[in-house]
């Protein structure tokens, strides 16, 4: 069974259609990347899957369960999103504890104290941060909180929207290592948006390249590493990523 199957997905904001016939399949336990131009509709695809963009046609199926464009709580427990901006995505007046307890309360899950403890430990956040506010945390710590919030309901699928693009390379390395470990330990499936191809090489198994609201190519990470992407736009992206001098 696929963890996620997207077929013929057209998503609109008002009258303007942003994606056109998107389709791809993510296997259970796989880490799949969506890459491509800014404005090509990557975030919009994640939002439709997460139930935050409601105007779409086509089909979105996770673990055999087809979702509707409306609110779908069962879906939410299996599938959580981590947003791009660790500054904007956390409520400024909520402590780490409140941020992490809230999804548990909404979904009527008990034993909240122990669950918060456990999830903080798994993302490498020391206990002393539990009652701090976002402004009292570093960028990397905030992103750990955002990942913890996504994990607290024990989802099987994580939607990651540029989870490290706002971070320093050294902090990025910590978060990438963390994501890799969490996937291994908890058998998670990832769908990750990024514009950083080396990040795809480190963390993903396959990728889809998007341009102007369409998927132009689906390839394996081995093809990416060997410089064997086919589509002209994919090749352009690879060329720019490789042209920066590497060490």
């Amino acid at each position: 069974m696929s963890a996620l199957k997207i077929e013929n997905l057209d998503i609109s904001y008002g009258d303007s259609k942003v994606t056109h016939g998107i389709g791809f399949d993510v296997a259970e336990g796989e880490s799949f990347a969506l890459v491509g131009e800014s404005g090509s509709g990557k975030t919009t695809v994640l939002k439709a899957i997460a139930g935050m963009a409601r105007s779409w046609t086509g089909s979105i199926t996770a673990f055999g369960h087809a979702r509707t464009p409306g609110i779908d709580r069962g879906f939410a427990r299996q599938c959580q999103m981590v947003f791009q901006d660790p500054y904007g995505s956390l409520h400024p007046r909520k402590t780490v504890d409140a941020t992490l307890s809230e999804p548990l309360a909404i979904h009527g899950v008990g034993d909240s104290g122990a669950r918060v403890d456990e999830v903080m430990q798994s993302v490498g956040l020391d206990r002393r941060f539990r009652f701090r506010f976002p402004h009292q945390l570093s960028g990397g710590q905030r992103q750990r909180v955002a990942i913890a919030r996504a994990l607290i309901l024990k989802p099987k699928l994580l939607l990651l929207d540029e989870p490290t693009s706002a971070l320093d390379v050294s902090v990025q390395a910590e978060i990438l290592n963390l994501l890799k470990r969490l996937r291994r330990e908890q058998g998670l499936t990832y769908l990750m948006v990024t514009h950083n191809l080396p990040v795809v090489s480190f963390l993903c198994d396959r990728l889809a390249v998007m341009r102007h609201g369409r998927v132009v190519e689906v390839a394996s990470v081995d093809q990416l590493k060997r410089g064997e992407l086919q589509d002209p736009y994919s090749r352009e992206l690879t060329r720019f990523s490789a042209s920066h001098p590497k060490t």
Binding site: G124, V171, A173, L176, P198, F202, K246, T247
Partner: peptide, 22 residues
Amino acid sequence: SIPRLDEDREELPVLQRDEAST
């Protein structure tokens, strides 16, 4: 700590910091 396009390291090296958890 920067991943490369032909990355094959299982884990990326991280900087040692004064504060335990970043």
